[in-house]
Structure formats: C-alpha cells, structure tokens
C-alpha cells in the first residue's frame, strides 16, 4: 500500500472517530473566535437541543416510532432539578442523575402501554402525555410556581468553578452534547442499532430475526427520555429559571421537526436540525411572530418531498444518483 492509500484506508476505517475529534476541536476553539455572549447563548441553546434531538432521533429516526411528547421529559428534567436543588436544597449533580432515573421510570410507565400502539395512535398518546405534564406544571403552583415560573435555580459548579457565564457554559453544555453524540453514534454502529433499523424497516421481519421489537422500542423510548431529562436539568441550571412555556406541545413538535429537518436516523443531522431551527428565527424576523406556522410549513414540505428528512434525503438522492451513474458506466 502506498502512503496515500494507507491514509485513505485509515480515514475510511476511523471516519466516525475523526469526525467527532474534528468537531470537538472546532468547539474547543469556537469561543476564541466568537466571544459575543449573545451568539454563545444561541449556540449553548443549540447544544441543549442537540442532546434532546440525538436521543429523539434514535427513537423516531432509527426505531421508526413517533413521539410528540418529548418536551414533557425535558420539562420533568428541568423542574425535577429545580425542585430538588431549590425546594429540597439537594446538591445539583446528584439531583440531575437522580431526576434522570425518575424520568426513566416515568418513561417506562408511559412507554409500556403506549408503545403497543403505533403511528397516529402513538403520536396522540405521547401528545396527551405532554399535555398532562404541562397542565401539572401550570396548575400545581405550590410546587412548580405555576405560570409565572420557577426562579432562583443555582448554576452548576465543579469544585469552586461555577458555570455562570456563556463561555463556561459553552464548554459544559457542548461536553454533554458531544457525549450524547458519541453514545448515539456507538449505539447505531452496533448490533443493537441494526436491530432498531430492522424494527423501523419491518416489524415482522425484525421479529423473525430474533429482535424483541416491543422491548427494543421501550428501551429506546426510555433512553431518549433520559437524554431529554439531562438536557432539561442543564437547561434549568443554565438559565436559573424555568417556566411551563418551554415545555408545551409546541416545544415537542419543534423537537420532532428538528429530527425531520436533520434527517431520520442521521445522528449528525440532529446537530444540523437543532442548529437550523434555533437559528432561523434569528436570521429572519418574520419567524418571530409566525414561528409555529412556519415550522409546520417546513414539516409538511419536507415530509412531502423528502420523507427521509432534509439532510438524509438530500444525501441519499445524491448517493443514489452516483451509484446509478457508476452502474451505467460499468454497463457501457
């Protein structure tokens, strides 16, 4: 093998690791070039959404299910951390993981009966679950602070190092986002990931190959809920304040739209989806007022023309064309 071939072989063999390393390096350097707190605030918000969308993409994109209620788990994580740290005065880090465990149990309780459903029914069930959680946040004001929100949540800290400005939060939040990405990328490259892809393709076939479809669905649902819960805890500690508005059904549909924009079953697409949807309102003023309307329009257009999602759909169109051209060239 020549050196060039060796390098190419190394790249194809380790392309996932290399992409992750490159992306991490870019993120480490980013605050050196961009120190505007407003911009960093936006990219930090993207990091939080990346954690949720990566988890949700495993459930929607890989396992082929639908959830329109993930803002509920996001909100439970946020309020859970808020109540644990402020009301009960517990330390922040253990609370975050304790809350994630509780949210996993909630997801299990919700998932076992609802994941017997599929398609529209599953969408409705998860949506309903979101409405219940949102209503509790609004109405149970002795505990949640009601519509006016829950203030005074402490920032996270390690030792004496407090994550209280945008640059510090940048490193904290993106570390979590990268971890989520890495875990998801590992998962989809494993036998379990292929089992999920099989499940999305055809449940009968997946079962005939020995995949316990019901169990696999529940596991991924719980996993995505845990991702959302961690993101919620980070959200609460990052803004020091939570209110029910951030966790209504429109937040849930936005998450699903991020998955679709990024591409079904594309882990990197999740980053793009979360990024685009967070930045769009900043780029175009009209988005501010008609956000939900325009998000709906984006969803409809993508599902009509690129049902695999924007990024995956475009990518597949291009690779299919290349394959066809190669086959033609080979034939002629």
């Amino acid at each position: 093998m020549s050196i060039k071939e060796k390098i190419l072989y190394f790249i194809t063999l380790h392309h996932t690791g290399l992409t992750v390393s490159g992306f991490s390096l870019a993120l480490v350097l980013f605050p050196l070039f961009e120190d505007n707190p407003y911009t960093l605030g936006l990219t930090n918000l993207i990091a939080i959404y990346v954690i949720i969308v990566v988890g949700l993409n495993l459930f929607i994109g890989y396992a082929g299910q639908i959830s329109l209620g993930h803002a509920a788990f996001f909100g439970l994580g946020a309020y859970g951390s808020a109540i644990a740290t402020v009301t009960f005065g517990l330390p922040a880090w253990p609370s975050m993981f304790g809350v994630a465990v509780l949210v996993a149990l909630v997801a299990l309780l919700v998932g076992v009966p609802t994941l017997r459903l599929s398609g529209h029914y599953l969408a409705m069930a998860t949506l309903g679950c979101n409405i219940v959680v949102h209503t509790i946040m609004l109405q149970w004001d002795q505990v949640t602070g009601g519509p006016s929100g829950f203030p005074g949540i402490p920032s996270l800290s390690i030792g004496g190092f407090v994550f209280d400005d945008e640059v510090r939060l940048h490193y904290l939040l993106w570390s979590f986002a990268l971890l989520a990405l890495l875990l998801a990328l590992n998962l989809v490259r494993s036998g379990v990931g292929r089992g999920l892809a099989a499940l999305a393709g055809d449940e009968t076939a997946a079962a005939a190959l020995g995949v316990d479809t019901q169990r696999a669905k529940i596991k991924v649902f719980v996993l995505s809920a845990v991702f959302a819960s961690i993101a919620g805890s980070l959200f609460a500690h990052c803004y020091n304040f939570v209110s029910p508005d951030s966790f209504d059904i429109f937040a849930s549909t936005d998450m699903a739209i991020m998955v679709v924009v990024g591409g079904m079953g594309s882990i990197w697409g999740s980053v793009i989806g979360a990024g685009l949807l967070t930045l769009l309102p900043e780029w175009i003023d009209i988005f501010e007022n008609y956000k939900d309307l325009i998000h709906g329009l984006i969803l409809v257009l993508i599902l009509m023309f690129l049902p695999q999602g924007l990024m995956t759909g475009l990518y597949e169109k291009i690779t299919d064309k290349i394959t066809l051209r190669r086959q033609k060239n080979a034939a002629s």
Binding site: A184, L187, G191, V192, G195, A206, A216, V220
Partner: peptide, 14 residues
C-alpha cells in the same frame, strides 16, 4: 441480531 447482544448500555459504551 441474536448474537450481536441486546444491551443498549454496552452498545453505547462500545
């Protein structure tokens, strides 16, 4: 699939 393992956690830790 039967031989590839079923644990999500193990798969995520690779």
């Amino acid at each position: 699939s039967c031989e590839a393992g079923h644990s999500l956690t193990m798969a995520m830790l690779r």
